[in-house]
């Protein structure tokens, strides 16, 4: 007897385009940013790159990046 094992393969977007969940989006003011790295470090979903670009296709809009930014360089702006 043999059973088929359900195996999933790693893939970006495995949970869909989670950017559609957002009601507020993070907007970075690069003039204020001192590149401390806190936002990238604490983003639960890894949607902030090492150059502090936010991937809005996947960012869920949790607001943690804005909350942990010591320079208040990230504003959460209501989605249209």
């Amino acid at each position: 007897m043999s059973a088929k094992l359900a195996i999933s393969k790693p893939k970006e977007g495995a949970a869909g385009k989670t950017g559609t969940w957002r009601t507020f989006k993070p907007v970075v003011d690069m003039e204020l940013c001192n590149k401390c790295g806190n936002c990238e470090r604490f983003c639960p979903d890894g949607t902030i790159s090492k150059d502090f670009e936010i991937d809005l296709e996947y960012c869920k809009g949790c607001g943690i990046c804005a909350e942990v930014c010591p320079k208040k360089a990230i504003k959460m702006v209501r989605e249209e």
Binding site: A14, G16, K60, C62
Partner: peptide
């Protein structure tokens, strides 16, 4: 290196993907 690809379906602000990263 990131082993948690964009993204899991955890709620916004969930601790789990942050820990797993």
């Amino acid at each position: 290196d990131e082993y948690i690809l964009k993204t899991t379906s955890a709620c916004a602000g969930c601790s789990i993907p942050l820990c797993l990263r």
